[in-house]
Design a protein around this nucleic acid. Structure first.
Lengths: 139, 139
DNA sequence: GAACACCCTGTAGCGGCTACAGGGTCAAGG
DNA sequence: CCTTGACCCTGTAGCCGCTACAGGGTGTTC
């Protein structure tokens, strides 16, 4: 199958498919006489796997590691557990910072209900005032 | 004050400060005879404001819009409200997708408790199997 | 023979930094 | 006087994961 069909089949943009090949995530397919890429069922599988991992927000480097496990099924799977654990840790960290963020934004929004001039806007005042506090050194 | 002091005072990396200047977010400061940047209190204020907005995860483009309001306090603040509302919307969207993600990862982790070979790893099996389902077309 | 849908390579851009390379400035110490 | 060291300068390239071209080729249909 050609790149367009593969894209259709997996819901992945063809530019993204070529990108995955370029960075060595998807193995280079056979070529037709005219140079067009020609994919087989294994590629569909592999690409779907990649997209599923991406849907879990894994960095491509981790996806690569997982693909290596798929390719070497005799390896110990302890690393797989660790990888998932790490990913979960990352997600939870972001989750809790997002929650804190939401709170702050809600509080901020409450500072200005009506339309005044910016000079009188509670939101702007709050933002300016808040930036005067040290607020725990940034990332 | 020189760039190093400004960085100290605000907790911002000096490379980041120069970066903000380059993209037009922080106004170019005066220069000493030797070419060194020389900042004043207004710069400290402005930079702290930027960092506070960034801590709320606002894109720099939005921060720029807010800074325009600070500079033109006679403007109507309706846009400020809208800006915060939009930001809140973005954060909430990401929040809910992160939550879904966490669930999936927890479920995935439960599929493999002990060390086997990768061939027998429930996590890997699950990932491969899951990628066979259509799973709602990707971004 | 022209329009169209598809494919190719290669490069540049996004955001928000971060990290150099390769230089200049200036005070303190030997 | 010279070196060391801390600081500063400009400019460019890299990170991630795409996305969007530019500028071409291929292959079927009217």
């Amino acid at each position: 199958m050609r790149i367009g069909e593969l894209g259709q089949a997996t819901g992945v943009d063809i530019e993204t498919i070529r990108h995955y090949e370029k960075i060595g995530l998807l193995s280079p397919p056979a070529r037709e006489a005219n140079g067009y890429r020609n994919y087989d069922a294994a590629h569909v599988e592999r690409l779907a796997f990649i997209r599923h991992c991406r849907a879990l927000d894994m960095p491509l480097a981790e996806v690569k590691r997982l693909l290596d496990f798929v390719a070497h099924p005799e390896a110990d799977c302890g690393d797989i557990n660790r990888l998932i654990e790490e990913q979960l840790g990352r997600v939870r960290e972001r989750l809790s910072s997002m929650q804190a963020l939401e709170k702050q934004l809600v509080a901020l929004r409450a500072r200005c209900g009506e339309n005044h001039t910016a000079r009188e806007c509670g939101i702007l005042h709050e933002l300016v005032a808040a930036s005067h506090e040290p607020e725990g050194r940034q990332r």
